[in-house]
């Protein structure tokens, strides 16, 4: 899939890195750099960079086929609870479908989201793998 150059470029901070938005009013945390706290709407938020480590709390093996996805299928998509608190949706890569379980420690790694057009941009972003350093 072709993405807008400017959109992808602008989103670097939310795809090359994991930021956590921490609310100064309600105290809750949410993934991504956000303008406002999604829970209470406060603008009194700070953005903290996550170390990218966490725990897999739910996952699915996805066969959902979209053009250009065949090289990556099936893919594992899951919810990761980051050590900093919030839960993030992401792809778990490099895994055998039978080796995962709830509670698997994972770490964020830079990978390609997609790159099927040989003349187009390569869309890099973070996915997760089971931690290498146990």
């Amino acid at each position: 899939m072709k993405h807008s150059i400017s959109i992808f470029w602008r989103l670097k901070d939310n795809h090359y890195k994991i930021y956590v938005t921490k609310c100064g009013d309600c105290g809750r945390v949410a993934p991504l750099k956000r303008l406002k706290c999604p829970y209470c709407g406060s603008r009194n938020v700070e953005h903290i960079e996550s170390r990218g480590f966490g725990e897999l709390i739910n996952y699915t093996v996805s066969y959902y086929r979209t053009e250009g996805s065949e090289q990556y299928l099936p893919r594992v998509v899951g919810l990761v609870k980051l050590d900093e608190g919030p839960v993030i949706i992401g792809e778990i890569t490099d895994v055998d479908l039978n080796e995962l379980s709830i509670g698997t420690r994972v770490e964020a790694v830079l990978r390609k989201y997609s790159s099927e057009d040989p003349n187009g941009l390569i869309y890099y972003g973070l996915k997760f793998i089971p931690v290498i350093k146990k």
Partner: peptide
């Protein structure tokens, strides 16, 4: 979600 190729059915599965 879209950029990461998360599918609507993935959420239903979770």
């Amino acid at each position: 979600e879209g950029i990461k190729n998360v599918a609507p059915s993935d959420y239903a599965a979770l």
